[in-house]
Nucleic acid binder design. Sequence first.
DNA 1: CTCACTTTGTGCTCGCGTTCACAAGCGCAT
DNA 2: ATGCGCTTGTGAACGCGAGCACAAAGTGAG
Lengths: 249, 249
Amino acid sequence: MTSPERDATQASTARAARPRPARQGIPEATVARLPVYLRALGSLAEDGVSTVSSEALAVAAGVNSAKLRKDLSYLGSYGTRGVGYDVDYLVYQVSRELGLTQDWAVVIVGLGHLGHALANYGGFSSRGFAVKALVDADPAIIGTTVAGITVSAPDRLPDLVRTLGISIAVITTPAPVAQDICDRLVAAGVGSILNFAPSVLAVPDHVEVRKVDMSIELQILAFHEQRKTGDALATIDAAVGALAVGGSA
Amino acid sequence: MTSPERDATQASTARAARPRPARQGIPEATVARLPVYLRALGSLAEDGVSTVSSEALAVAAGVNSAKLRKDLSYLGSYGTRGVGYDVDYLVYQVSRELGLTQDWAVVIVGLGHLGHALANYGGFSSRGFAVKALVDADPAIIGTTVAGITVSAPDRLPDLVRTLGISIAVITTPAPVAQDICDRLVAAGVGSILNFAPSVLAVPDHVEVRKVDMSIELQILAFHEQRKTGDALATIDAAVGALAVGGSA
DNA sequence: CTCACTTTGTGCTCGCGTTCACAAGCGCAT
DNA sequence: ATGCGCTTGTGAACGCGAGCACAAAGTGAG
């Protein structure tokens, strides 16, 4: 391990029953890194850098330079040997590959603390994402305005999705209702879901779900932290556990 | 019962010259799934289920049953053939492996919308994590009380970490200051960092960093959404791009 | 006791992703 | 023009993780 930074989130990618011809076939792992490259390129562009080598960009993105070159090679041969990559050109190519040359309408469902925070987060709109609708089940919240948008009731979802051309949804509801909301979103025609609720969502194969779960991330960190601080304690703990629980079983 | 030996030594993951059984090494992919199993087990326990088969638990966790059995086998042989797994016993074993039998003190740095939301999120304390300190650089926020905790200035970090026994930090600052805060946290003795800021953090090898980035997740979804809705459009777009930018060809 | 049935634990294969190492290609100085 | 130095793009090796398929091990009925 000892990888400096591990990607925290994982795609719960539904296994495609029918393997597409994969005409372009960009590996999933590469797709997950392209946004990182894009961000690094944006910083370089702001600093007035016009050309960058794979080594320099790799450092900025926190990856291996060979990996970066292979990733970019899936998009095409956009570099110049002996020179590097033109920053602006690469920004455009990566953006296009990720589908960021068009705007995406997003709905946020669930306006608790996290939903509010996301609705007010400005980082989305700058990257081609526009929060176009907010939905919550609480009658006390429905009709109020959050981040300049009036909150709608869940049964308005089909209408909202169709009218506003929404294809991406963010779920920030409590876990017990996440699956129900998910089903409604899918029925309404949403094709991609970003799920912040701590629950496993079941969706048809054609719908893409990605999960962000802070509790899980903390637990993974706790595992590594425990590894570092005293395995002796864990050994004692294991013995106690075997006596206390296994003994009675 | 022969206790599943937890030979504590070998914390180092240095490449062994000889292929060793590596009894200690739980694969990273498995560690990332254990919290999911734990949550599913918790739901089952609440429903009064006392025994569960790998197949049933796998469905609840959204994974393959063979994968689940292999994952659990890394912890030891805690199942009973022909019967399944004892829910309570397995909850305990997984919790212990993840280091959740002890409490972890957490500091949240950066009290914007997201920091506030996390500070008020109750899901942490129920899983062995306790937010013990809040830090922000804004003088207008320092000294106020959020979620029952007084907000401290960044220069109090070393003191807070030492006094409160903090080993895990959550960064929810703007990107430009994230690295600075990260450096301070590492210097103060924090061993694990959960980074919500959209920036790549550089840390020493002994510090674990995990990243959660909503913009990146949305961009990955956009990629797949673009794939689904018209490859023809993307092709045209590519041609236009080649003319506009690489136009001399 | 024996047999049929259930479920775990795991050897094995296969495919993906990472990394190394180097040939191919480009610019520049001479 | 030519050679040198730099950087890209990629073939190939390697390691990890996913999933199949089955032997091992337990339960319960007769």
